[in-house]
């Protein structure tokens, strides 16, 4: 999985490309831990995400919880495969999907 970060002031855009599974999800966790402090607007661009496992869901949920406290989080460009996962797991109720 490739992680691209663009920080503009308090806005942080993270683009995820590839597969987010048990092995690669900790990468995003580490990245978020490093850069999430002070971020008020977190945008996750999932256009290039091919696969999302429960480990990935866990990281997204953790990010959502952090952003609930310090600002807002938006998930955008969700493709059909990922959207289905969000729907089945009920994530559509807690994530702001654009």
């Amino acid at each position: 999985m490739t992680i691209e970060k663009i920080a503009e002031g308090t806005k942080l855009t993270i683009t995820l490309i590839g597969r987010m599974d048990t092995i690669t999800a900790p990468q995003l966790e580490v990245e978020l831990k490093q850069s999430i402090s002070g971020v008020e607007e977190l945008v996750l661009d999932l256009a290039g995400l091919e696969y999302l496992s429960s480990a990935g869901l866990r990281v997204l949920l953790a990010a959502q919880k952090v952003m609930n406290r310090q600002g807002s989080m938006v998930v955008k460009n969700v493709n059909e495969t990922i959207m289905e996962i969000f729907e089945v797991t009920g994530f559509v109720d807690v994530l702001t999907i654009e």
């Binding site: 869901l57 949920l61 959502q64 919880k65 797991t89 009920g90 994530f91 109720d93 807690v94």
Partner: peptide
């Protein structure tokens, strides 16, 4: 319509 996973929020 599934609700969120348990222990999520």
């Amino acid at each position: 319509r599934p609700g969120l996973v348990l222990a999520g929020m």
